[in-house]
Computed example of a mutant assay.
Amino acid sequence: MDTQAPVPAALRPYVAWLSAYDVVGPPGIHRGLPGTSLTFVLPIGAPLDVAWSGDPGSRGAVWSSVAGLHAAPAEIRHDGHQEGFFLALTTAGARALLGLPAAAIAGELLTLDDLVPALRHLPEQLHQSLTWTDRAATLHRALTTALAAGGAPEARAEVGRALARLARGAAVADVAEEVGYSRRHLRNLVVAETGLSPKEYQRVARFETSRDQVLAAARRGGTLAEVAANCGYADQSHLAREWRELAGCAPTTWLREEFPDVQAGGVPVG
Rank of each mutant, 00 (worst) to 15 (best):
M1I: 12
D2M: 08
P6L: 01
V7N: 01
R12H: 01
Y14Q: 03
Y21L: 06
V24F: 08
P26F: 04
L33I: 05
T39Q: 07
V41I: 08
L42I: 07
G45P: 12
S58G: 12
W63R: 15
S64Y: 13
H70I: 06
H70P: 02
R77H: 12
R77T: 03
G84Q: 02
F86L: 12
A92E: 06
G93F: 03
G99N: 09
A103M: 05
E108K: 13
T111F: 11
D113C: 11
L115T: 03
L115M: 10
R120S: 14
L122E: 05
L122I: 10
S129T: 08
L147C: 09
G150L: 06
G150K: 07
E158G: 00
E158L: 08
A162S: 05
R165N: 00
R165I: 02
A176T: 08
E177K: 14
V179L: 02
V179D: 00
V190L: 01
L196M: 11
L196T: 02
Y201W: 15
R203T: 09
R203L: 06
A205L: 12
R206I: 00
S210C: 13
D212T: 07
L215N: 02
L215G: 07
R220N: 01
R220V: 09
T223M: 04
E226M: 12
Y233Q: 03
S237K: 14
R241K: 14
L246A: 02
T253A: 15
V267K: 06
